[in-house]
Amino acid sequence: MKVTIEVNGRSTVEEVEDRTLLVHYLRDTLGLTATNVGCDTTSCGACTVLLDGESVKSCTVLAAQADGHRVTTVEGLTGEGGELHPVQRAFSNQHGLQCGFCTPGMIMASVSILAENPKPTRQEVREALEGNLCRCTGYHNIVSAVMEASGQEVDG
């Protein structure tokens, strides 16, 4: 089938197999490999992207379901001139990433958290990130990154 999906502000039109998952559409069809796959049970959130501005696990969405919609991945967060999104910058400043495998998903989940709750507490950030797993950081610095990006005191 043919799908038309706006990805990071660019319209993409591709012929795909019906069962193609959005994450594979991004990674294999478009070559946008930042979005990762970490599980097969919708548990880890490594594949988190924004679909019409809301975070979804792209391993659990068919490309067909995104037909006619807008998708943002971490590749689309950086500005034209290469300037980092505040959440990207905060992840680096606060050392909210180590191996980086969870990071694209974490960053997209964090963007979505802040869109819904611009001034969260540390505890609220933890709760909102429950569906995003990280094996490296112990989450402390990820929470700090979201706090920094929200313009609040990092220590809450």
Binding site: R27, G31, T33, A34, T35, N36, V37, V74, E75, L77, T78, L84, Q88, F91, S92, N93, H95, L97, C99, G100, F101, T103, P104, I107
Partner: peptide, 21 residues
């Protein structure tokens, strides 16, 4: 010192084995 590794990981993502082209 903020890590020199980070920029790639937060913009285009790491090059993990399944990402290699």
């Amino acid at each position: 010192v903020v890590r020199i590794e980070d920029h790639k990981l937060i913009t285009s993502g790491g090059s993990y084995v399944d990402d290699l082209r």
